[in-house]
Amino acid sequence: MNRIVLISGIVIFAALVGVLFLNLGHDPSAIDSPLVGKPAPSFALKAVGTGETIDVARLRGKPAIINFWATWCGPCYLEHPVLVQNARVLGNQVQFVGVVFNDTEQKIQAFLADRGSAYPTLLDESGKTAIAYGVGGVPETFFLDRNGKIVAKYTGPMSTEDIQKNLAKAMK
């Protein structure tokens, strides 16, 4: 029995098969946000329609939801009514804000007219705010507590349940 071969074999087996096994079923493109637990990056963007500039400081005092989306995104189309409905219900307690990037004002207006609007939608023309928030795809949603700290990030379209679960963290 060749000890060296046996031991190195066992080590290689354990390491390789172990690592692969532990990663089974895990989606390699799901990236955790490093911003959770940190203050929300600042921005100052123009709202579509009204033209007023809204900055992140405006969101303080209440928990906030920042939803990044775009008109060309299928899941965003499905998610939008859910957000609008929740905004109508929770509007007093929670500040909703939508941020659109890589898009045009015309298309956004058409989308909102079609799918509804209950809160400000901001246009990030240069995409810098999306970059600052580490947005990789759309839709992505950030939940902020009343002090402007990010408590959760949700990737993908949300249901009412998802919104409420994450809001609970923001309410604490």
Partner: peptide
């Protein structure tokens, strides 16, 4: 079928290590 292939890989790896450890000399 990822898990199935991983199982096969593990099996062949065990077989090869056992074979090498006992017979290489």
């Amino acid at each position: 079928i990822g898990p199935t292939i991983l199982a096969f890989l593990a099996a062949v790896l065990i077989f090869s290590i056992a074979l090498l450890a006992t017979r290489i000399d």
